[in-house]
Design a protein around this nucleic acid. Structure first.
Lengths: 120, 120
DNA sequence: CATGACGGTATCCTTTTCGACACTATGTGC
DNA sequence: GCACATAGTGTCGAAAAGGATACCGTCATG
């Protein structure tokens, strides 16, 4: 999330591209959305799927996604807390975008590029 | 561009999504790519299309895109300098991604949300 | 009583991003 | 001699992103 989420996007025709990016930018938002496409999930369920993301960051990203109307947060008033996250229709409409990102990434992003894999 | 471009993307299946984002993230990269899909352009040509972007930032973004192998930079050894930017095949392969971002943005990103458009 | 699971907060700190502004070199035009 | 255009670079500083760590309340389990 940049300092100002979206101020004016009529500056030039490509600006809606940036506009979309502002929504899915953020270190873990892409992955979170990707996982939520599988279905509703509880907080720790998501957390386990993204081990490198700290609890605070996950909370942050989820809150922002919620604020942006991409995901819904449902709290159950139970004693061991239970919170479920799911995509809103708006969030689900991002599926082609995430899919495009994943396809390109699978083809072009080298996994762990700098790691010399047990450089003997 | 986050602090580390891509360290390991094998952490979870959605990570290539983030991987792709790391390439097109950066305040103006999306727009720059978008404009370059139209064809080769000179520095100030791009600059004029993205008025809100400062010269330094544009140079930055172009350098990063070049480093990532998405665009090519051709310098003509002329006295009034002339530099042309164009997409590499790799950069061009991002077209479906940018297109998906633009489609979603056109449909979902409100232009200038806080501006009450001549609120009388 | 201590520990763990759940779903978070609060605080602190470092790194990154990005904007503003000035400065560069060279040739042309006035 | 001065300004202008091109395509930058350098430096500074503020703000934001993001990581580390500790803490919260409640209930169940051992």
């Amino acid at each position: 999330m940049p300092r100002v989420r979206h101020e004016r996007f009529d500056c030039s025709p490509g600006c809606t591209v940036e506009g979309t990016l502002r929504y899915i930018d953020g270190k873990w938002k892409g992955v979170v959305l990707y996982h939520l496409f599988e279905g509703t999930m509880r907080f720790n369920e998501i957390r386990r799927r993204i081990p490198n993301c700290t609890q605070r960051m996950l909370t942050n990203q989820l809150r922002e996604l919620e604020t942006d109307g991409l995901i819904a947060r449902k709290v159950y008033a139970q004693v061991p807390p239970k919170v479920e996250y799911s995509l809103t229709p708006r969030g689900r409409s991002l599926e082609p975008v995430i899919t495009a990102l994943k396809i390109w990434g699978d083809a072009n992003v080298t996994l762990a590029p700098e790691v010399p894999q047990a450089a003997a």
